[in-house]
Write a protein that binds this DNA or RNA. Structure first.
Lengths: 230, 230
DNA sequence: GGAGAATCGTCACCGAAGCGACCATTCTGC
DNA sequence: GCAGAATGGTCGCTTCGGTGACGATTCTCC
Protein backbone atom coordinates (compact mmCIF):
# COMPACT_ATOMS: atom_id res chain seq x y z
CA UNK A 1 0.00 0.00 0.00
CA UNK A 2 1.49 3.28 -1.01
CA UNK A 3 1.17 6.61 0.65
CA UNK A 4 -1.56 7.79 -1.66
CA UNK A 5 -3.73 4.92 -0.65
CA UNK A 6 -3.16 5.70 2.96
CA UNK A 7 -4.68 9.02 2.28
CA UNK A 8 -7.52 7.48 0.41
CA UNK A 9 -8.72 5.41 3.26
CA UNK A 10 -8.27 8.05 5.85
CA UNK A 11 -10.00 10.54 3.69
CA UNK A 12 -12.74 8.03 3.32
CA UNK A 13 -13.15 7.98 7.04
CA UNK A 14 -13.71 11.67 7.07
CA UNK A 15 -16.06 11.60 4.15
CA UNK A 16 -18.17 8.79 5.34
CA UNK A 17 -18.18 9.22 9.07
CA UNK A 18 -20.95 7.03 10.25
CA UNK A 19 -21.82 8.92 13.37
CA UNK A 20 -25.17 10.01 12.06
CA UNK A 21 -25.76 6.83 10.29
CA UNK A 22 -28.61 5.17 12.04
CA UNK A 23 -31.15 7.48 13.61
CA UNK A 24 -32.76 4.80 15.70
CA UNK A 25 -34.95 5.97 18.51
CA UNK A 26 -34.98 4.53 21.98
CA UNK A 27 -38.01 2.42 21.14
CA UNK A 28 -36.22 0.98 18.18
CA UNK A 29 -33.34 0.01 20.35
CA UNK A 30 -35.75 -1.60 22.77
CA UNK A 31 -37.25 -3.57 19.93
CA UNK A 32 -33.79 -4.60 18.94
CA UNK A 33 -33.06 -5.57 22.51
CA UNK A 34 -34.13 -9.14 22.15
CA UNK A 35 -31.87 -9.76 19.22
CA UNK A 36 -28.60 -8.77 20.74
CA UNK A 37 -26.74 -7.91 23.87
CA UNK A 38 -24.60 -5.23 25.30
CA UNK A 39 -20.91 -5.79 25.35
CA UNK A 40 -18.28 -3.81 27.21
CA UNK A 41 -14.84 -3.35 25.82
CA UNK A 42 -11.77 -2.06 27.56
CA UNK A 43 -9.60 0.43 25.72
CA UNK A 44 -7.31 -1.32 23.33
CA UNK A 45 -9.52 -4.33 22.77
CA UNK A 46 -11.23 -5.08 19.52
CA UNK A 47 -14.87 -5.34 18.59
CA UNK A 48 -13.83 -6.96 15.37
CA UNK A 49 -10.82 -7.16 13.13
CA UNK A 50 -10.33 -6.62 9.45
CA UNK A 51 -10.57 -9.78 7.41
CA UNK A 52 -12.51 -11.70 10.01
CA UNK A 53 -15.77 -13.18 8.93
CA UNK A 54 -18.46 -10.65 9.63
CA UNK A 55 -20.64 -12.21 12.28
CA UNK A 56 -22.08 -9.16 14.00
CA UNK A 57 -22.83 -5.49 13.67
CA UNK A 58 -22.49 -3.09 16.57
CA UNK A 59 -24.34 -0.01 17.66
CA UNK A 60 -22.01 2.08 19.75
CA UNK A 61 -23.65 3.10 22.98
CA UNK A 62 -20.83 4.83 24.82
CA UNK A 63 -17.18 5.53 24.22
CA UNK A 64 -15.19 6.06 21.07
CA UNK A 65 -14.23 3.36 18.65
CA UNK A 66 -11.37 3.61 16.23
CA UNK A 67 -11.70 2.07 12.81
CA UNK A 68 -8.51 1.22 11.04
CA UNK A 69 -7.00 -0.95 8.40
CA UNK A 70 -3.86 -2.93 8.99
CA UNK A 71 -1.16 -2.53 6.42
CA UNK A 72 2.35 -3.88 6.07
CA UNK A 73 3.72 -0.44 6.81
CA UNK A 74 1.53 0.16 9.82
CA UNK A 75 -2.04 0.67 10.81
CA UNK A 76 -4.09 3.29 9.09
CA UNK A 77 -6.79 4.95 11.11
CA UNK A 78 -9.84 5.12 8.98
CA UNK A 79 -12.28 6.64 11.36
CA UNK A 80 -13.26 7.35 14.91
CA UNK A 81 -16.89 6.98 15.81
CA UNK A 82 -18.83 7.63 18.95
CA UNK A 83 -22.21 6.86 20.45
CA UNK A 84 -24.93 6.26 17.91
CA UNK A 85 -22.65 4.92 15.25
CA UNK A 86 -23.31 1.60 13.61
CA UNK A 87 -20.29 -0.35 12.55
CA UNK A 88 -19.79 -3.58 10.72
CA UNK A 89 -23.16 -3.63 9.05
CA UNK A 90 -21.95 -3.21 5.50
CA UNK A 91 -19.68 -6.21 5.68
CA UNK A 92 -22.40 -8.10 7.51
CA UNK A 93 -25.02 -7.57 4.86
CA UNK A 94 -22.57 -8.16 2.09
CA UNK A 95 -21.61 -11.43 3.69
CA UNK A 96 -18.02 -10.38 3.24
CA UNK A 97 -15.20 -10.11 5.77
CA UNK A 98 -14.97 -6.93 7.75
CA UNK A 99 -13.34 -4.23 5.70
CA UNK A 100 -11.73 -2.60 8.72
CA UNK A 101 -10.85 -3.27 12.32
CA UNK A 102 -12.71 -1.68 15.22
CA UNK A 103 -10.80 -0.98 18.40
CA UNK A 104 -12.05 0.66 21.57
CA UNK A 105 -10.03 3.73 22.48
CA UNK A 106 -12.12 4.44 25.55
CA UNK A 107 -14.22 2.20 27.72
CA UNK A 108 -16.86 1.25 25.22
CA UNK A 109 -20.35 -0.07 25.59
CA UNK A 110 -21.85 -1.35 22.40
CA UNK A 111 -24.86 -3.31 21.38
CA UNK A 112 -23.94 -6.39 19.52
CA UNK A 113 -26.25 -7.81 16.87
CA UNK A 114 -25.32 -11.26 15.71
CA UNK A 115 -25.71 -11.92 12.05
CA UNK A 116 -28.18 -14.74 12.41
CA UNK A 117 -30.30 -12.93 14.95
CA UNK A 118 -30.18 -9.68 13.08
CA UNK A 119 -31.35 -11.15 9.83
CA UNK A 120 -34.19 -12.86 11.64
CA UNK A 121 -35.06 -9.69 13.48
CA UNK A 122 -35.19 -7.64 10.33
CA UNK A 123 -37.27 -10.26 8.62
CA UNK A 124 -39.73 -10.36 11.46
CA UNK A 125 -39.73 -6.65 12.09
CA UNK A 126 -39.86 -5.05 8.68
CA UNK A 127 -40.25 -1.64 10.23
CA UNK A 128 -36.77 -1.86 11.62
CA UNK A 129 -35.53 -3.09 8.27
CA UNK A 130 -37.23 -0.11 6.71
CA UNK A 131 -35.58 2.24 9.13
CA UNK A 132 -32.23 0.71 8.43
CA UNK A 133 -32.90 0.97 4.73
CA UNK A 134 -33.94 4.58 4.96
CA UNK A 135 -30.92 5.39 7.07
CA UNK A 136 -28.71 3.64 4.55
CA UNK A 137 -30.12 5.55 1.62
CA UNK A 138 -29.91 8.77 3.56
CA UNK A 139 -26.30 8.01 4.19
CA UNK A 140 -25.83 7.33 0.51
CA UNK A 141 -27.29 10.65 -0.44
CA UNK A 142 -25.44 12.49 2.32
CA UNK A 143 -22.26 10.83 1.12
CA UNK A 144 -22.82 12.12 -2.36
CA UNK A 145 -23.43 15.62 -1.10
CA UNK A 146 -20.49 15.45 1.24
CA UNK A 147 -18.22 14.34 -1.53
CA UNK A 148 -19.47 17.16 -3.71
CA UNK A 149 -18.68 19.56 -0.91
CA UNK A 150 -15.21 18.15 -0.46
CA UNK A 151 -14.32 18.01 -4.10
CA UNK A 152 -13.49 21.56 -4.99
CA UNK A 153 -12.52 22.88 -1.62
CA UNK A 154 -9.10 24.01 -0.66
CA UNK A 155 -7.20 22.30 2.09
CA UNK A 156 -7.50 25.24 4.43
CA UNK A 157 -11.27 25.12 4.19
CA UNK A 158 -11.26 21.42 4.86
CA UNK A 159 -8.91 21.89 7.79
CA UNK A 160 -11.16 24.56 9.25
CA UNK A 161 -14.19 22.33 8.99
CA UNK A 162 -12.38 19.37 10.45
CA UNK A 163 -11.23 21.40 13.43
CA UNK A 164 -14.75 22.60 14.07
CA UNK A 165 -16.03 19.06 13.87
CA UNK A 166 -13.39 17.48 16.02
CA UNK A 167 -12.91 20.12 18.69
CA UNK A 168 -13.92 18.94 22.14
CA UNK A 169 -15.76 21.01 24.70
CA UNK A 170 -12.56 22.87 25.52
CA UNK A 171 -12.10 23.83 21.91
CA UNK A 172 -9.16 21.50 21.56
CA UNK A 173 -8.35 18.96 18.90
CA UNK A 174 -5.96 16.31 20.11
CA UNK A 175 -4.59 14.86 16.93
CA UNK A 176 -1.19 14.93 15.32
CA UNK A 177 -0.92 16.91 12.15
CA UNK A 178 -0.09 13.72 10.35
CA UNK A 179 -3.40 12.24 11.47
CA UNK A 180 -5.17 15.40 10.43
CA UNK A 181 -3.62 15.19 7.01
CA UNK A 182 -4.66 11.57 6.65
CA UNK A 183 -8.20 12.37 7.66
CA UNK A 184 -8.35 14.95 4.91
CA UNK A 185 -6.57 12.84 2.33
CA UNK A 186 -3.86 15.43 2.20
CA UNK A 187 -0.25 15.68 3.32
CA UNK A 188 1.27 16.78 6.58
CA UNK A 189 3.11 19.66 4.96
CA UNK A 190 0.06 21.08 3.30
CA UNK A 191 -1.98 20.76 6.47
CA UNK A 192 0.79 22.40 8.42
CA UNK A 193 0.78 25.29 6.02
CA UNK A 194 -2.96 25.64 6.39
CA UNK A 195 -2.59 25.59 10.15
CA UNK A 196 0.06 28.27 9.89
CA UNK A 197 -2.33 30.49 8.01
CA UNK A 198 -5.06 29.88 10.53
CA UNK A 199 -2.61 30.61 13.33
CA UNK A 200 -1.50 33.85 11.74
CA UNK A 201 -5.14 34.78 11.26
CA UNK A 202 -5.65 34.32 14.98
CA UNK A 203 -8.13 31.51 14.61
CA UNK A 204 -6.18 28.82 16.40
CA UNK A 205 -3.14 28.02 18.48
CA UNK A 206 -1.04 24.98 17.81
CA UNK A 207 1.03 22.81 20.10
CA UNK A 208 2.34 19.32 20.37
CA UNK A 209 -0.57 17.15 19.28
CA UNK A 210 -2.96 19.92 20.20
CA UNK A 211 -4.85 22.56 18.30
CA UNK A 212 -6.80 25.10 20.32
CA UNK A 213 -9.62 27.08 18.80
CA UNK A 214 -9.17 30.75 19.63
CA UNK A 215 -11.60 32.39 17.27
CA UNK A 216 -14.37 30.14 16.18
CA UNK A 217 -15.91 32.73 13.88
CA UNK A 218 -12.94 32.80 11.57
CA UNK A 219 -13.19 29.07 11.10
CA UNK A 220 -16.91 29.15 10.53
CA UNK A 221 -16.61 31.90 7.99
CA UNK A 222 -14.07 29.86 6.11
CA UNK A 223 -16.26 26.79 6.15
CA UNK A 224 -19.62 28.29 5.31
CA UNK A 225 -18.45 31.21 3.25
CA UNK A 226 -17.30 29.20 0.32
CA UNK A 227 -19.75 26.36 0.30
CA UNK A 228 -22.28 26.70 -2.46
CA UNK A 229 -25.75 26.03 -1.19
CA UNK A 230 -26.90 22.60 -2.12
CA UNK B 1 -25.04 27.79 -9.80
CA UNK B 2 -21.51 28.37 -10.87
CA UNK B 3 -19.36 26.39 -13.19
CA UNK B 4 -17.67 24.50 -10.42
CA UNK B 5 -20.98 23.18 -9.24
CA UNK B 6 -21.82 22.08 -12.74
CA UNK B 7 -18.80 19.90 -12.60
CA UNK B 8 -19.72 18.65 -9.18
CA UNK B 9 -23.04 17.29 -10.19
CA UNK B 10 -21.89 15.85 -13.45
CA UNK B 11 -18.99 14.21 -11.74
CA UNK B 12 -21.46 12.87 -9.28
CA UNK B 13 -23.30 11.23 -12.09
CA UNK B 14 -20.20 9.40 -13.11
CA UNK B 15 -19.26 8.43 -9.60
CA UNK B 16 -22.60 7.25 -8.50
CA UNK B 17 -24.05 5.78 -11.63
CA UNK B 18 -26.95 3.79 -10.39
CA UNK B 19 -27.04 1.26 -13.16
CA UNK B 20 -25.95 -1.54 -10.91
CA UNK B 21 -27.88 -0.29 -8.02
CA UNK B 22 -30.59 -2.80 -7.42
CA UNK B 23 -29.72 -6.31 -8.42
CA UNK B 24 -33.27 -7.53 -8.28
CA UNK B 25 -33.95 -10.87 -9.84
CA UNK B 26 -36.89 -11.70 -12.02
CA UNK B 27 -38.70 -13.28 -9.07
CA UNK B 28 -38.22 -10.15 -7.07
CA UNK B 29 -39.76 -8.13 -9.81
CA UNK B 30 -42.64 -10.55 -9.94
CA UNK B 31 -43.15 -10.14 -6.23
CA UNK B 32 -43.11 -6.43 -6.74
CA UNK B 33 -45.56 -6.76 -9.58
CA UNK B 34 -48.64 -6.34 -7.51
CA UNK B 35 -47.45 -3.11 -6.01
CA UNK B 36 -46.85 -1.16 -9.15
CA UNK B 37 -47.35 -0.97 -12.85
CA UNK B 38 -45.41 -0.59 -16.02
CA UNK B 39 -45.41 2.77 -17.67
CA UNK B 40 -44.20 3.65 -21.14
CA UNK B 41 -42.61 6.94 -21.89
CA UNK B 42 -41.91 8.51 -25.23
CA UNK B 43 -38.54 10.16 -25.75
CA UNK B 44 -38.54 13.62 -24.31
CA UNK B 45 -41.18 12.99 -21.69
CA UNK B 46 -40.50 12.97 -18.00
CA UNK B 47 -40.81 10.28 -15.40
CA UNK B 48 -40.49 12.93 -12.76
CA UNK B 49 -39.12 16.39 -12.38
CA UNK B 50 -36.80 17.95 -9.90
CA UNK B 51 -38.55 19.63 -7.02
CA UNK B 52 -41.77 17.70 -7.41
CA UNK B 53 -43.01 15.81 -4.43
CA UNK B 54 -41.56 12.34 -4.61
CA UNK B 55 -44.52 10.04 -5.08
CA UNK B 56 -42.95 7.09 -6.84
CA UNK B 57 -39.74 5.27 -7.54
CA UNK B 58 -39.02 3.66 -10.90
CA UNK B 59 -37.17 0.59 -11.97
CA UNK B 60 -36.05 1.08 -15.55
CA UNK B 61 -36.98 -1.88 -17.69
CA UNK B 62 -35.96 -0.71 -21.15
CA UNK B 63 -34.52 2.39 -22.70
CA UNK B 64 -32.24 5.05 -21.37
CA UNK B 65 -33.25 7.72 -18.93
CA UNK B 66 -31.44 10.97 -18.51
CA UNK B 67 -31.15 12.48 -15.06
CA UNK B 68 -30.53 16.16 -14.90
CA UNK B 69 -30.88 19.18 -12.71
CA UNK B 70 -32.39 22.38 -13.97
CA UNK B 71 -30.39 25.48 -13.36
CA UNK B 72 -30.84 29.11 -14.28
CA UNK B 73 -28.02 28.78 -16.80
CA UNK B 74 -29.36 25.64 -18.36
CA UNK B 75 -29.93 22.00 -17.64
CA UNK B 76 -27.15 19.93 -16.23
CA UNK B 77 -27.10 16.28 -17.12
CA UNK B 78 -26.37 14.36 -14.00
CA UNK B 79 -26.58 10.86 -15.30
CA UNK B 80 -27.87 8.52 -17.91
CA UNK B 81 -29.16 5.20 -16.71
CA UNK B 82 -30.41 2.16 -18.49
CA UNK B 83 -32.30 -1.04 -17.76
CA UNK B 84 -31.98 -2.23 -14.20
CA UNK B 85 -31.51 1.18 -12.70
CA UNK B 86 -33.67 2.36 -9.87
CA UNK B 87 -34.37 6.04 -9.77
CA UNK B 88 -36.21 8.27 -7.39
CA UNK B 89 -35.93 6.00 -4.39
CA UNK B 90 -33.68 8.19 -2.32
CA UNK B 91 -36.01 11.13 -2.50
CA UNK B 92 -38.94 8.83 -1.92
CA UNK B 93 -37.59 7.36 1.27
CA UNK B 94 -36.36 10.68 2.46
CA UNK B 95 -39.81 12.10 1.95
CA UNK B 96 -38.16 14.97 0.16
CA UNK B 97 -38.74 16.36 -3.33
CA UNK B 98 -36.92 14.70 -6.18
CA UNK B 99 -33.35 15.88 -6.34
CA UNK B 100 -33.18 15.60 -10.09
CA UNK B 101 -35.37 15.29 -13.14
CA UNK B 102 -35.69 12.07 -15.12
CA UNK B 103 -36.37 12.30 -18.82
CA UNK B 104 -36.67 9.49 -21.33
CA UNK B 105 -34.19 9.81 -24.16
CA UNK B 106 -35.40 6.65 -25.85
CA UNK B 107 -38.69 4.84 -25.72
CA UNK B 108 -38.67 3.82 -22.08
CA UNK B 109 -40.49 1.14 -20.19
CA UNK B 110 -40.27 1.47 -16.46
CA UNK B 111 -41.90 -0.07 -13.48
CA UNK B 112 -43.52 2.50 -11.31
CA UNK B 113 -43.80 1.98 -7.57
CA UNK B 114 -46.06 4.44 -5.84
CA UNK B 115 -44.90 5.67 -2.52
CA UNK B 116 -47.86 4.40 -0.55
CA UNK B 117 -47.87 1.02 -2.20
CA UNK B 118 -44.13 0.65 -1.96
CA UNK B 119 -44.00 1.37 1.73
CA UNK B 120 -46.78 -1.10 2.30
CA UNK B 121 -45.09 -3.67 0.14
CA UNK B 122 -41.83 -3.38 1.95
CA UNK B 123 -43.58 -3.58 5.28
CA UNK B 124 -45.46 -6.69 4.29
CA UNK B 125 -42.61 -8.29 2.41
CA UNK B 126 -39.58 -7.80 4.59
CA UNK B 127 -37.49 -9.94 2.30
CA UNK B 128 -37.82 -7.36 -0.41
CA UNK B 129 -37.03 -4.65 2.09
CA UNK B 130 -33.96 -6.60 3.06
CA UNK B 131 -32.88 -6.93 -0.53
CA UNK B 132 -33.36 -3.26 -1.06
CA UNK B 133 -31.41 -2.57 2.08
CA UNK B 134 -28.57 -4.85 1.08
CA UNK B 135 -28.46 -3.31 -2.36
CA UNK B 136 -28.39 0.13 -0.82
CA UNK B 137 -25.54 -0.69 1.52
CA UNK B 138 -23.67 -2.38 -1.29
CA UNK B 139 -24.07 0.74 -3.29
CA UNK B 140 -22.80 2.74 -0.36
CA UNK B 141 -19.69 0.64 -0.08
CA UNK B 142 -19.15 0.57 -3.83
CA UNK B 143 -19.55 4.30 -3.87
CA UNK B 144 -16.85 4.68 -1.28
CA UNK B 145 -14.50 2.49 -3.23
CA UNK B 146 -15.32 4.20 -6.48
CA UNK B 147 -14.67 7.59 -5.00
CA UNK B 148 -11.34 6.36 -3.65
CA UNK B 149 -10.45 5.17 -7.11
CA UNK B 150 -11.37 8.47 -8.69
CA UNK B 151 -9.79 10.71 -6.13
CA UNK B 152 -6.11 10.50 -6.85
CA UNK B 153 -6.21 9.71 -10.51
CA UNK B 154 -5.10 11.96 -13.26
CA UNK B 155 -7.54 13.23 -15.81
CA UNK B 156 -6.09 11.14 -18.59
CA UNK B 157 -6.67 7.97 -16.59
CA UNK B 158 -10.21 9.01 -15.86
CA UNK B 159 -10.78 9.84 -19.50
CA UNK B 160 -9.47 6.48 -20.55
CA UNK B 161 -11.76 4.69 -18.14
CA UNK B 162 -14.74 6.74 -19.16
CA UNK B 163 -14.16 5.99 -22.82
CA UNK B 164 -13.94 2.30 -22.10
CA UNK B 165 -17.14 2.46 -20.11
CA UNK B 166 -19.12 4.51 -22.54
CA UNK B 167 -17.95 3.07 -25.84
CA UNK B 168 -20.75 1.36 -27.76
CA UNK B 169 -20.40 -1.86 -29.66
CA UNK B 170 -18.67 -0.02 -32.48
CA UNK B 171 -16.07 1.36 -30.12
CA UNK B 172 -17.51 4.83 -30.41
CA UNK B 173 -18.37 7.34 -27.76
CA UNK B 174 -20.90 9.87 -28.94
CA UNK B 175 -20.50 12.69 -26.50
CA UNK B 176 -19.18 16.19 -26.83
CA UNK B 177 -15.93 16.90 -25.08
CA UNK B 178 -17.78 19.35 -22.91
CA UNK B 179 -20.08 16.58 -21.74
CA UNK B 180 -17.11 14.34 -21.15
CA UNK B 181 -15.49 17.00 -19.03
CA UNK B 182 -18.64 17.45 -17.00
CA UNK B 183 -18.94 13.74 -16.42
CA UNK B 184 -15.44 13.73 -15.00
CA UNK B 185 -15.80 16.93 -13.04
CA UNK B 186 -13.09 18.47 -15.11
CA UNK B 187 -12.89 21.08 -17.84
CA UNK B 188 -13.19 20.86 -21.58
CA UNK B 189 -9.66 22.09 -22.13
CA UNK B 190 -8.11 19.55 -19.82
CA UNK B 191 -10.12 16.74 -21.32
CA UNK B 192 -9.18 17.89 -24.78
CA UNK B 193 -5.54 17.76 -23.83
CA UNK B 194 -5.95 14.26 -22.47
CA UNK B 195 -7.68 13.24 -25.69
CA UNK B 196 -4.81 14.73 -27.66
CA UNK B 197 -2.36 12.58 -25.77
CA UNK B 198 -4.47 9.50 -26.34
CA UNK B 199 -4.76 10.40 -30.00
CA UNK B 200 -1.01 10.82 -30.36
CA UNK B 201 -0.52 7.51 -28.57
CA UNK B 202 -2.72 5.90 -31.20
CA UNK B 203 -5.37 4.82 -28.75
CA UNK B 204 -8.27 6.78 -30.18
CA UNK B 205 -9.46 8.97 -33.01
CA UNK B 206 -11.50 12.06 -32.38
CA UNK B 207 -14.13 13.76 -34.43
CA UNK B 208 -17.12 15.97 -34.09
CA UNK B 209 -18.96 14.57 -31.09
CA UNK B 210 -17.33 11.23 -31.67
CA UNK B 211 -14.43 9.37 -30.16
CA UNK B 212 -13.43 6.11 -31.77
CA UNK B 213 -11.43 3.53 -29.89
CA UNK B 214 -8.54 2.37 -32.07
CA UNK B 215 -6.37 0.55 -29.59
CA UNK B 216 -8.26 -0.69 -26.61
CA UNK B 217 -5.17 -2.11 -24.93
CA UNK B 218 -3.59 1.28 -24.48
CA UNK B 219 -6.66 2.51 -22.67
CA UNK B 220 -6.90 -0.55 -20.50
CA UNK B 221 -3.27 -0.31 -19.53
CA UNK B 222 -3.81 3.25 -18.49
CA UNK B 223 -6.85 2.39 -16.43
CA UNK B 224 -5.66 -0.73 -14.69
CA UNK B 225 -1.96 -0.05 -14.66
CA UNK B 226 -2.11 2.73 -12.19
CA UNK B 227 -4.96 1.66 -10.00
CA UNK B 228 -3.79 0.30 -6.70
CA UNK B 229 -5.58 -2.91 -5.89
CA UNK B 230 -8.32 -2.35 -3.43
C1' DG C 1 -25.40 27.42 -50.08
C1' DG C 2 -24.82 30.54 -46.34
C1' DA C 3 -25.12 32.51 -41.55
C1' DG C 4 -24.84 31.51 -36.97
C1' DA C 5 -24.33 28.20 -33.40
C1' DA C 6 -21.90 24.42 -31.51
C1' DT C 7 -17.82 22.05 -31.08
C1' DC C 8 -12.89 21.18 -31.30
C1' DG C 9 -7.76 22.21 -30.93
C1' DT C 10 -4.37 24.75 -28.71
C1' DC C 11 -1.93 28.15 -26.03
C1' DA C 12 -0.11 30.91 -22.01
C1' DC C 13 -0.78 31.81 -17.26
C1' DC C 14 -1.36 30.74 -12.53
C1' DG C 15 -2.75 28.71 -8.14
C1' DA C 16 -3.16 24.54 -5.34
C1' DA C 17 -1.01 20.97 -3.50
C1' DG C 18 2.09 16.74 -3.52
C1' DC C 19 6.87 15.63 -2.47
C1' DG C 20 11.45 15.61 -0.55
C1' DA C 21 14.51 17.68 2.52
C1' DC C 22 16.09 19.69 6.72
C1' DC C 23 16.07 21.15 11.33
C1' DA C 24 13.71 22.43 15.81
C1' DT C 25 10.80 20.98 19.43
C1' DT C 26 8.53 17.71 22.37
C1' DC C 27 7.79 13.40 24.26
C1' DT C 28 8.88 8.61 26.06
C1' DG C 29 11.26 4.89 28.04
C1' DC C 30 15.21 3.61 30.28
C1' DG D 1 18.42 13.34 32.58
C1' DC D 2 19.37 11.38 28.25
C1' DA D 3 19.05 9.08 23.74
C1' DG D 4 16.08 8.21 20.27
C1' DA D 5 11.62 8.51 18.46
C1' DA D 6 7.79 11.26 17.28
C1' DT D 7 6.03 15.52 15.96
C1' DG D 8 6.04 20.27 14.24
C1' DG D 9 7.62 24.23 11.13
C1' DT D 10 9.27 25.63 6.85
C1' DC D 11 11.59 25.65 2.02
C1' DG D 12 11.78 24.94 -2.79
C1' DC D 13 10.64 22.25 -6.67
C1' DT D 14 7.40 20.19 -9.64
C1' DT D 15 3.11 18.52 -11.55
C1' DC D 16 -1.58 18.82 -12.31
C1' DG D 17 -5.28 21.10 -13.73
C1' DG D 18 -8.46 25.33 -13.79
C1' DT D 19 -9.09 29.74 -16.52
C1' DG D 20 -9.40 32.80 -20.28
C1' DA D 21 -8.53 33.50 -25.01
C1' DC D 22 -8.46 32.74 -29.93
C1' DG D 23 -9.15 30.59 -34.14
C1' DA D 24 -10.50 26.45 -36.96
C1' DT D 25 -13.85 23.05 -37.98
C1' DT D 26 -18.39 21.06 -38.21
C1' DC D 27 -23.16 21.12 -37.92
C1' DT D 28 -28.00 23.03 -38.40
C1' DC D 29 -31.54 25.41 -40.13
C1' DC D 30 -33.31 28.45 -43.36
Amino acid sequence: MDIAEHQHFAWLARSFGRTDYLPLTAEDLDALGAAGEYVDKYPGTHLFKEGEESIAAYVVKAGDVELYRSRPDGDLVVGRVGPGAVIGDIALFQGAPYISSAKAVEPVTAFRLDRSKLLLLLTEHPVIAMRWLVAGLNQLEATQRHVIRLMHRTVIEQVAELILDEADRFGEVRLSQTSLANLLGSTRQTVNQALSQLRKAGAIETGYRVIRVVNRNILETLVTGSVPAL
